[in-house]
Design a protein around this nucleic acid. Structure first.
Length: 362
DNA sequence: TCCAAAAAGACGATTACGTCA
DNA sequence: GGTGACGTAATCGTCTTTTTG
């Protein structure tokens, strides 16, 4: 099943599935481009490797190292995106930061890449966005859900100065320090009761990098997730949640666009319906005023399917009526939809013409 | 080969937190 | 400083698909 919607450039053929590259390359041309497709087996190819669903990054790492592929390393990264939506600004995303200077370290298809060894993309490992992997005390380490780690990220970054190329002005940094201190206070409280939900704000760099990776893959397989988590020093669960929320936002935007488009279609069709009603009334009025108007045998009214000209054929003559000369409606109110259905123009026409597509004998 | 249970992932709905006007 | 709106990280429940015994 395929469903495609393209707004902004109807002249370009709209390809579905495995066209995400094309969509990306034509981003400058498209204001909005969306594709929905389901491949042959009805779902995106699923990553086969199993991964724990946990909140402990350390466990993630150790478990991941012990995992073996159930399909002999069949770590295929799906190319066919079930949903493709490009709602991004036309301006290309600036890649001036080191985060964007290199491609994403997606594990190769053979699964040989561990993400960590495939390149750091210019990101200093464990520096800059170290949210959860900074040195933990034994107590903190025993509490993987503790928010102390996120506090440590903030505090470490700004206490340690410009770490990892995070260039923030002193004012922002000062606010962050205050925020970090607040987080520290909360963290200590939360560690005691463990009830309050923790929430961290991803840095701009992290968000930008996740955004870039989302443009390449809107879903992640476990290896990709782990690699991304390593690169950004986030927990895999955080990456997973971010992608989940990002997909939800994309879908929401997509729904909004769909609604707007359907609304415009509805308005246009309503206008067209109103116009046709008006035309019908005019025809009925004409018929009433001239009761002999449509007394021709039905078999004498024919229409050319190609040019939509109505020919009133009699035993000896054939009269064609060009639509443009007989349409009583305002041309400026013509529907923007291409009207492919045949239209009947029953006005009498004294001028006898030869139908261009048929001989008078036929 | 069939089947049920388990596991994993995705999604929708919702909550809760951080930021800003 | 308080407050509401908004964005978003995080959680929960459910469903679907795949794997496994």
């Amino acid at each position: 099943m395929e469903l495609g919607l393209s707004l902004g450039d109807a002249s370009k053929p709209f390809g579905l599935l495995a066209k995400d590259r094309e969509i990306h390359t034509t981003r400058n041309d498209l204001g909005f481009c969306m594709a929905l497709g389901i491949n042959s087996n009805g779902r995106q190819e699923q990553e086969t490797e199993k991964e724990h669903h946990d909140d402990d990054y350390a466990d993630d790492e150790s478990d991941e190292a012990l995992k073996t592929s159930r399909r002999n390393g069949d770590q295929r990264v799906s190319v066919d995106l079930p949903v493709q939506l490009d709602l991004l600004p036309r301006a290309p995303v600036p890649r001036s930061t080191p985060l964007h200077q290199q491609s994403f370290p997606w594990p190769s298809d053979n699964g040989s890449s561990d993400g960590g060894s495939s390149g750091n993309m210019g990101i200093p490992a464990a520096r800059g966005f170290d949210v959860n992997r900074l040195p933990l005390t034994a107590e903190e380490a025993s509490s993987p859900n503790s928010v102390a780690s996120s506090f440590q990220m903030d505090f470490c970054i700004y206490r340690g100065g410009n770490v990892g190329g995070n260039k923030r002005d002193s004012e922002t940094a000062g606010n962050d320090v205050v925020e970090a201190e607040r987080a520290s206070s909360r963290a200590s409280d939360e560690d005691e009761n463990g009830l309050t939900r923790k929430k961290l704000r991803l840095s701009k760099e992290q968000s930008a990098y996740l955004e870039e990776s989302f443009k390449e893959h809107n879903t992640l397989n476990p290896k990709q997730k782990l690699a991304l988590a390593k690169q950004l020093n986030l927990r895999p669960r955080q990456v997973e949640v971010w992608f989940q929320n990002r997909r939800a936002r994309t879908k929401l935007k997509q729904t909004e666009v769909d609604c707007e488009y359907l609304k415009r279609c509805c308005e246009t069709l309503t206008e067209e319906n109103r116009r046709l009603h008006k035309e019908l009334q005019e025809l009925r009025a004409l018929k009433t005023s001239n009761p002999f108007y449509m007394q021709l045998p039905a078999t004498t009214l024919t229409m050319c399917p190609s040019c939509e000209r109505v020919a009133t054929t009699s035993t000896s003559t054939s009269t064609t009526v060009p639509p443009s000369t007989t349409n009583t409606t305002d041309p400026s109110k013509a529907t923007p939809f291409p009207l492919s259905r045949p239209r009947f123009y029953p006005f009498s026409h004294t001028q006898t013409q030869t139908h261009p597509h048929r001989s008078t004998a036929s």
